[in-house]
Amino acid sequence: MQFVTITSPHTDRPNSVTVTMLWVIIALVPGAAAMTWYFGWGIVIHMLLASAAAVAAEALVLRLRGRPVVPAVSDLSAVVTALLLAIALPPLLPWWLTVLGIVFAIVVAKHLYGGIGYNPFNPAMIGYVLLLVSYPVEMTTWLPPIMLNQHPLDLMQTMNAIFGGTLPPGLDWDALSMATPLDEMRNQLNQNKMISEIRRSPLWGDFGGLGWEWVGNWYLLGGLILLYKRIISWHIPVAMLGSVLFMAMLFHFLDQESHPFGLFHIFSGGTLLGAFFIATDPVSAATTRKGQLIYGTCIGLITYVIRRWGGYPDAVAFAVLLMNMAAPTIDYYTQPRVFGERSAGDD
């Protein structure tokens, strides 16, 4: 009797890339739902739009590269990239900017480097930074959270705003939009106001901006799902959040009136989303355990430094991209001690 010969192991493999990506998508659901609750339909529209554009762009590039389309598209990695980019975009951003961002992310940042597994930079963050640098006004035009929003838009109105650039009669962009808490804090501080003075406004919650801070909590929940499913390890998130908190608390205690309490930085902007979903992107992050601690710590440091002294209100994207460049070097110098390998001390 003849049998097929296949290399070991002869087991039912427990993991697959598709399942991993699916879990990332599932873990994004609480945070994305919370954002939709606070900021309206725009979040959902951008997620769908970006996903469709990402899959289309990926299929197109795969065809051009002469690679099989279905297996690569069905790994859902393009969808994850699209969702991560979409939830970082302002809810009423014109549709073509979303498409531009995601197409650039998929085509240039991912496939021109060789596709999944080969991209040195996080594609979603490349797309985000492209938009932020090129269209700073549109990218910083955020909506106020639902409890502060006097003119919440319904689905049709939101679609009109995104696809047609038109607002309901009697509303203009200035009346509708509001800066993000990070932006607000920064602007106020730049006007030499004191923290105690700034925080008197109803915009603020316990730590961060009203509403905003809760979105952070839901991303934290998603991150815990990923940790529980062992899709990510604790090293990068803990190191990154720890270093942001350390820096923020350090400066807070040095000068309480011009540096907000440490948790403000954790619950504002992209910190929690970045720590669990973006910095942990396996392809572009460091892979050794020690290396991940260094990588996460540096992202936290750079994030704080840019937020405090740099030209942008948030900096997670820049910090991640900068550390993406360093990841291979970090990996090289942080190889674990191999079992049975003698340490330098003994003979």
């Binding site: 002869h10 087991t11 991993t20 790994d75 990695s77 999944i116 597994g117 392809v283 892979t287 990996d331």
Partner: peptide
């Protein structure tokens, strides 16, 4: 018991291999 794992796809550098290696290799 031993399904065909299908064609290998690109490594996504997730590091699960290093986590389970009994010799601490990469």
């Amino acid at each position: 018991e031993a399904p065909n794992p299908g064609p290998a796809t690109a490594c996504i550098r997730c590091g699960m291999c290093a986590e389970v290696c009994p010799v601490s290799l990469l």
